[in-house]
């Protein structure tokens, strides 16, 4: 199946008759009854999971407004009053706004870099035959299985010797390097499925390889880029181990560092309400971003899901 020929997703609620099914005999009568049972069943299951997923989050939000004693005493009760000072305490101690900005910079930069470099490498590996191709491919793939923790100390020296320690751009480069394996793995598979006729046509028209790539292949690969971009975004946004070691300057901390710091120090101080306020604070923007861009995310995935 060619991605470019994928039909538009069936809008579930639109009611537009895509295919009339009335004329069909037998099988559909059975299907109707079955459909009803299935419908009740599926609603039931879906609702249960929805509750299981949202309860802890609702609970976290609720808890962020409680005082410490009642968090433990009666975990399910509603807060007696809204303790907004939990929030202000977490906000001022955790420097959420600074960390948020740093995170956006780092993740933004490395996401773009990962996609550009990853697609370049993947394209070459997927569509060109040259000695060492397989070797380089497996070298990249193997990287998926390296436990980052192992490399931390030597990596520190590499970064230090290049003068990139405690810099945002240094962190970006390292994030890119560690995101390449999965990106190359994913995009190589994707490029292989793209039709070669278009690229050949462009090439015959006198376009260089480079131009063919940027002007023809990359736009065609957009769905794949969106999919892998989302994978990488989530991974990089939540990355914790790398900045802990490579980015020790408190002014340049990213959100996860701030949060863990908050979690540990609130743990020592027993300030759990402050911790929950910090957690909720960190999760809301991402949640909001997802709800706003949900349509785009889903569309991107839809196009990229089937190759």
């Amino acid at each position: 199946m060619k991605t470019t020929e994928t039909p538009a997703p069936v809008p579930a609620e639109s009611g537009t008759p895509v295919h009339k099914a009335e004329a069909s005999p037998g099988g559909l009568e059975k299907g109707k009854k079955e459909g009803t049972t299935l419908n009740v069943f599926s609603h039931g299951v879906l609702v249960i999971w929805a509750i299981m997923v949202s309860l802890p989050l609702v609970w976290a939000v609720m808890t962020s407004f409680k005082d410490d004693a009642s968090i433990f005493r009666s975990p399910w009760s509603l807060p007696d009053k809204l303790n907004f000072d939990n929030w202000s305490r977490a906000w001022s101690q955790a420097h959420m706004s600074d960390y948020f900005l740093n995170t956006v910079l780092v993740v933004g930069g490395s996401l773009i870099g990962t996609l550009v470099l990853g697609s370049m490498a993947a394209y070459v590996l997927a569509r060109f035959d040259f000695p060492g191709n397989r070797f380089i491919y497996y070298l990249f793939i193997g990287g998926m299985s390296f436990p980052i923790m192992l490399a931390l100390v030597p990596l520190f020296y590499v970064v230090d010797n290049m003068g990139l320690l405690n810099t945002i751009h240094g962190l970006i480069l390292v994030y890119i390097a560690y995101s390449l394996p999965f990106t190359v793995f994913f995009l190589t598979a994707f490029f292989r499925t793209l039709p070669s006729s278009v690229a050949e046509a462009a090439f015959v028209d006198g376009a260089s390889h480079t131009r063919t790539f940027f002007q023809v292949m990359l736009p065609m690969a957009k769905p794949g880029l969106i999919s892998v971009g989302i994978f990488n975004f989530l991974g990089q946004w939540n990355q914790y181990m790398l900045p802990t070691v490579l980015n020790t300057d408190p002014d340049k901390h990213v959100l996860t560092q701030g949060l863990v710091q908050l979690a540990v120090s609130q743990g020592y101080k027993g300030d759990w309400s402050g911790l929950f306020a910090g957690l909720v604070m960190a999760m809301l923007p991402v949640l909001a971003a997802y709800i706003v861009f949900q349509r785009q995310v889903v569309q991107g995935l839809t196009a990229g899901a089937l190759k």
């Binding site: 370049m120 070298l139 990249f140 192992l150 970064v159 260089s208 480079t210």
Partner: peptide
């Protein structure tokens, strides 16, 4: 073209991932 496209990603990867490992 191949070298041009592979050099930077591979270099970065070798430097920050492979070598420490």
């Amino acid at each position: 073209f191949i070298v041009g496209f592979l050099a930077v990603p591979l270099g970065l990867y070798a430097l920050f991932v492979i070598w420490p490992f």
